[in-house]
């Protein structure tokens, strides 16, 4: 269905969708879209569409998972069967379990878990439409939804990916670049403290490229943070 493009970056330095190499896709965030959840967020990141819902702190079930000292954070990342070109078999799969785990670990460090012992905070992220970088979109949405739910947090978590196509580092890969590119490196960070909480890599990068890639991703995260913050503030005015 998708032919491999001959070149990812044209003579003018623009990518397939007309972005520069260090440009993010347009990001749109809406806060409090679900009435039944304690906190929620709808997010569009380029062609990605995700919705995040947060429940809690609430009583944890099954009870044997409870921790007498702190709250238990649970994160479920799920792709809708219609989110990709070829219908995805619904339900949890190997990839989904992994993404849930790394996403949870990227968000957990900011939550003050000792405030609510014996309880759970449940985060649900549903990917409605996927176009590369859904885990980063999910983390951005989950972080805003957690704030909306009034969970005590040390800061917001922002996330974006950096990758390599045509031997050039590019920020925030889109689908073609992800599928046929040379590398993909998602990163999440607590923007306030410059702490990286998620770092994965697929493909090859040299040491210098890796260093430069991290810098690009960090500046991308900082831009995303501004949009997250603005969305939260605008929701109350």
């Amino acid at each position: 269905m998708n032919d491999i493009p001959e070149r990812f970056i044209n003579e003018e330095g623009l990518r397939l969708d007309g972005r520069r190499v260090d440009e993010l896709r347009p990001l749109k965030i809406e806060v409090g879209v679900l009435k039944r959840a304690d906190g929620s967020c709808y997010l569009e990141f380029g062609n990605n569409k995700v919705i995040a819902a947060v429940y809690g702190p609430r009583e944890i079930h099954p009870r044997h998972l409870q921790n007498a000292m702190e709250t238990v954070v649970r994160y479920r990342y799920n792709m809708a069967s219609f989110s990709v070109d070829e219908r995805k078999r619904p339900g949890p799969d190997r990839r989904g379990v992994e993404v849930s785990k790394v996403s949870r670990e990227s968000i957990e460090p900011v939550i003050l878990k000792e405030y609510y012992p014996r309880s759970s905070v449940d985060i649900f992220v549903e990917v409605l439409q996927a176009d590369a970088g859904t885990r980063t979109a999910g983390i951005n949405a989950a972080s805003v939804a957690l704030a909306d739910a009034g969970i005590p947090m040390k800061g917001l978590v922002s996330s974006c990916a950096v990758g390599k196509v045509d031997n050039t580092l590019v920020l925030d890969l889109m689908k073609e670049e992800d599928n046929y590119g040379q590398a993909d490196m998602p990163l999440a960070m607590v923007t306030k403290d410059d702490i990286i909480t998620l770092l994965q890599m697929d493909g090859d990068l040299s040491k210098d490229e890796f260093k430069k890639g991290i810098e690009m991703a960090i500046s991308g995260c900082k831009e995303i943070y501004k949009i997250q913050k603005k969305a939260l503030i605008d929701a109350y005015s």
Binding site: V110, M153, G155, L156, V190, T191, K229, I233, Y236
Partner: peptide
Amino acid sequence: IDKEVVVPG
């Protein structure tokens, strides 16, 4: 709104 809204952090 006439008071400042803040976000975590």
